[in-house]
């Protein structure tokens, strides 16, 4: 199938990947400097998946990203200011200090569903969202992201089966990054491809290079439009590598250095920039300008978040229930 991406769109997606990397790197610095609150999770290596898959959705579609999908939150309109304020537990944040880092960063105005630490729970919730679109005959699609770890749970299977039985307009992105915290794939499953788990339930399943932005976008776009037109759910296994620890505290000494070195050569942003340069779609100067813009935006977000008020303990009871 011919690429759906225009050159202008390619440059936009490059910006979102670069912004994701810049914000992620800045967050790591903040934590190293002791300016962070609680835990935070690393994004490096996942940028092409979170941006490429997220970009394939239309504005009325909904998405439940997880903790490696900063790029998806950003391109769906959640600003670096609000996201960083959430990382720092401020009153101005998405969750008003109720939940930390990217957890709970849901906003129905942006059609983003928040996740919980029990990551596979975004699966049935998103299938339910998709079923609600069918119920109301709305041409909308629901997408979620999980990792290789979640694919081992019963809920993964329950959700894919439910999506299949109801032919739900549902797209599942599995970010197979080789490790569930410290546990390698070899200790999680004996199959080579998680995609077979989708196929076992009668769900169409694709496998894609998760470090190739265009490939992720194309396969996801096809899945989204197929779902929208009544073609049912698709699961997409994106093969990638988590390039840093599970969370900020984790040095990931358990990952063989050779494996990381090998994947470092396939960095999703480096690769996409090389493609843009080789195709004459951008100059180095333009790429540098994007990087500068991202640095400025992230600096402004840090200033905003660190300057934001802490939540007032007098409001601690607010919002447990919808009134």
């Amino acid at each position: 199938m011919a690429s759906q991406l225009t050159n202008g769109r390619r440059r936009e997606l490059h910006y979102w990947m670069r912004l994701t990397r810049t914000l992620d790197d800045r967050i790591i610095k903040l934590w190293q400097q002791g300016r962070g609150v609680g835990a935070t999770f690393n994004q490096r290596g996942h940028e092409a998946i979170s941006v490429g898959a997220g970009a394939a959705l239309g504005p009325s579609d909904v998405v439940a990203p997880m903790h490696r999908d900063l790029g998806c939150y950003l391109l769906r309109g959640m600003t670096p200011e609000r996201l960083l304020a959430n990382q720092l537990g401020r009153a101005t944040s998405v969750t008003r200090g109720r939940d930390g880092n990217l957890h709970g960063c849901g906003d129905l105005d942006l059609n983003i569903i928040g996740f919980i630490s029990h990551l596979p729970h975004s699966l049935p919730v998103t299938v339910g969202a998709a079923m609600s679109f069918t119920y109301r005959n709305e041409p909308r699609v629901a997408m979620t992201f999980v990792g290789d770890g979640s694919s081992n749970t019963g809920l993964f299977h329950e959700s894919l089966n439910l999506a299949a039985v109801h032919n739900a307009p549902f797209v599942l992105i599995v970010e197979n990054n080789q490790y569930a915290y410290s546990t390698p794939l070899s200790q999680q499953m004996v199959i080579d491809d998680i995609a077979v788990r989708g196929r076992a339930h009668g769900v169409r399943a694709e496998i894609v290079d998760g470090n190739d932005l265009e490939a992720v976008y194309e396969v996801t776009y096809d899945a989204v439009e197929r779902a929208r037109s009544g073609g049912g759910p698709t699961m997409i296994e994106c093969k990638t590598m988590r390039m840093l620890g599970h969370a900020i505290h984790d040095g990931a000494g358990y990952v063989p250095p050779d494996l990381l070195a090998d994947w470092a050569k396939r960095d999703p942003i480096d690769r996409f920039e090389a493609t843009l340069l080789a195709g004459g779609l951008a100059t180095q100067e333009e790429l540098d300008q994007v990087a500068d813009r991202c640095r400025r935006e992230v600096a402004a977000a840090v200033e905003y978040a660190e300057g934001s008020e802490w939540p007032d303990p007098a409001t601690i009871l607010d919002g447990v229930y919808a009134e």
């Binding site: 129905l108 569903i113 049935p124 919730v125 339910g128 079923m131």
Partner: peptide
Amino acid sequence: RRVMNMPMTELGFIGAASGMALFGL
């Protein structure tokens, strides 16, 4: 359509109920 028999997956279909509820059902 409005009386949905579910596969025997309470964890899954209660989760799906949450997703439906988030979107107005």
